[in-house]
Design a protein around this nucleic acid. Structure first.
Lengths: 153, 153
DNA sequence: TAATAATAGTTAGTGTGACAAATATCGGAA
DNA sequence: TTCCGATATTTGTCACACTAACTATTATTA
């Protein structure tokens, strides 16, 4: 494969991901939803699977632990989640979506879906499937190669 | 189009872009290249088009101005670039790739290309073209809608 | 049981992104 | 010439990503 042709896919991905996030955030702000895109990701996952501990939540949402710690801090400050001590393991917490949290997820979900759909104008379901396949392949190609060539570090 | 099907493309994009960046950064570190992925993007663009001012550079690289200011600060600290006063406009600088900067671009480029290619295993040129078309369409769909619905903000 | 390893989570440091506001300068109109 | 709206860059603040180091707790095992 030609090296040149593929040389900038990383920048392309980066700039598109940023655009998507930025667009969503602006729409959130416009609706006076006091929430960030990443915080919403956590809420959405908690809504489907409440009372996970932070490690499980980090796994599901592809966030690293320090990042998740801070996001949970912010969500707790807003009263949308709370940390409940794990009955059997005092090292870990169950992250619990509060009633207020559930309320906002229910209230905001329709608009969130609408906001997301904006990106798909002029694109088809086949495009989506292709995109998903390609991105998943890229992810897998680069995943789990943490130690490769890192002997000098 | 079904709303559910497309609901998580944002997370998919975000996580893939992060993986690509993370992989590249680890390889950079493994090679003892004292540079970040975003700094490299700037260097690469300067190499093709030296002595742009920061606004032009921000435009080309899709960085906002404050971010670019800080990246240039870091590159200047490393001696890879320097700010030269614009002969006609004292508000702006020409960002100049130094000899050291040029040297590193030349030295590092082959490895950078190799690192980028890793992501494309099991994928074809047609996949790349599709990916580019889809991401560009998404970008355009969301671009220039800054003010839409932002009346409350 | 005491020492050790592994796990859950937090904190700190650096780099980046978005946004708002400040500063300096430029260019044109009154 | 002076004023005023644009332009170029910087600074400050908050949020997130990644690494490394740290605390507390649990599990292992000698």
């Amino acid at each position: 494969m030609s090296t040149d042709l593929f040389s900038t896919y990383g920048d392309l991905l980066d700039r598109t991901a940023r655009k998507v996030k930025q667009y969503a955030q602006r729409r959130f702000n416009a609706e006076n939803y006091d929430i960030t895109v990443d915080q919403w990701l956590i809420l959405r996952n908690l809504n489907q699977n409440n009372d996970l501990n932070q490690s499980q939540l980090a796994e599901i949402t592809d966030k690293d632990h320090p990042t998740l710690t801070r996001i949970i801090d912010l969500l707790c400050k807003k009263g949308l989640t709370e940390r409940r001590i794990h009955p059997a393991d005092r090292r870990s917490f169950n992250v619990h979506l509060t009633e207020l949290g559930k309320h906002h997820v229910a209230e905001w979900s329709p608009k969130m879906a609408e906001i997301r759909m904006k990106a798909w104008e002029n694109l088809t379901e086949a495009d989506y499937k292709n995109l998903k396949r390609i991105l998943d392949t890229i992810y897998k190609n680069l995943d789990g190669v943490k130690s490769e060539g890192t002997d000098k570090v």
